[in-house]
């Protein structure tokens, strides 16, 4: 028998709005929006809207926070996505260079059900949830982002990894013809990331397909990205085309570039400094003063057990 022990952050079942009510409300609001547009029809007040993705249907999910959300324009305008340029504003500017259609996701390696899926087929079986997570960049800034996605463990369950599969490896799209950053040798392309199986199975770990209720903008890693909120942002690999189950720890891009600076685990840890700068504090985008960085980015209660007995200075 499975005994579910609710974490203190999980919403009580009574707090969860049933999807039909929720979706109904979204339809209602959308209707209101259209009505308002009609009322304004032809008015000069109508500005060209910034490129927004398609609206998604989703339910609220657990592990929420009541911290202020980082404004959408900052979440989508201040990015590290070196495939689209190394400046913070480059990814938004070059977003159109990432071609997301058609998109194929390959799942293979040590599993019983490998497969190659069209994105729609890959996503269809999974109901979407909103997950409001803190994101802490290794550079010392952070955001609070309402992602929309589903737990990675659903994909893993579907693939049925073998007992020997101890790691999950991820790869970003390789398309140097279109992605300007992949023509620079700043990192070894394609971008690669990886998780230990228990990290990948953890309910906090999600595959995101959207943010702020809409499908992911390209600069945020469309159409499919990983979000691992207790690790530095670079672990949350964007625009995934390949998921592989492996026995050995897979090579990861920043670790390949500078192994002394970026470890495989890269858990947010205020007590282990980056060799070149302190990780003790961070600037939350939109705030003036720095705030103290929390162990595991504030998800200590949920994930500390994964690392029991490990020397986090050695396995940084």
């Amino acid at each position: 028998m499975l005994i579910r022990i609710p974490s203190k952050h999980a919403p009580k079942p009574s707090e969860i709005t049933p999807p039909e009510v929720y979706r109904g409300r979204r339809r209602f609001l959308r209707g209101m929006g259209l009505a308002a547009m009609g009322a304004l029809g032809g008015s000069a007040l109508l500005q060209p809207a910034p490129a927004h993705g398609a609206s998604l249907d989703y339910m609220p999910g657990p592990f929420g926070t009541d911290e202020t959300l980082t404004p959408r324009e900052d979440v989508t305008g201040y990015n590290n996505f070196y495939e689209l340029g190394t400046g913070k504003a480059d990814p938004a500017r070059n977003a159109h260079r990432l071609i997301t259609e058609p998109w194929t996701v390959t799942v293979d390696g040590l599993c019983l059900n490998p497969g190659r899926y069209r994105l729609d087929d890959f996503l269809r079986p999974h109901a979407l949830e909103e997950r409001i997570y803190r994101l802490r960049c290794v550079e010392g800034w952070s955001m609070v982002i309402p992602w929309v996605g589903f737990e990675l463990n659903r994909i893993i369950a579907q693939a049925e990894p073998l007992g020997s599969a101890r790691y999950v490896a991820f790869t970003t799209l390789m398309d140097p013809e279109n992605l300007p950053g992949q023509r620079l040798r700043v990192l070894e392309w394609p971008y690669r990331e990886g998780l230990r199986m228990d990290e990948a199975m953890h309910p906090l770990t999600i595959l995101a397909v959207g943010l702020y209720g809409e499908s992911l903008p390209n600069q945020n890693g469309a159409p499919l990205r990983l979000v691992v909120p207790w690790k530095y942002g670079f672990k949350s690999i964007k625009s995934i085309v390949h998921i592989r189950f492996a026995e050995e720890e897979p090579p990861t891009s920043w670790n390949m570039a500078t192994p002394r600076e970026y470890g495989f685990y890269s858990n947010v840890n205020p007590d282990v400094d980056h060799p070149r700068w302190s990780q003790r504090t961070e600037r939350r985008i939109g705030e003036l003063r720095r705030r103290r960085t929390l162990m595991f980015n504030g998800y200590e209660e949920e994930v500390a057990a994964l690392y029991a007995g490990m020397d986090l200075r050695k396995h940084f």
Partner: peptide, 10 residues
């Protein structure tokens, strides 16, 4: 010129 961006102090 787009202001100071999301991280003005930086």
């Amino acid at each position: 010129g787009g202001g100071l961006g999301a991280n003005p102090i930086e």
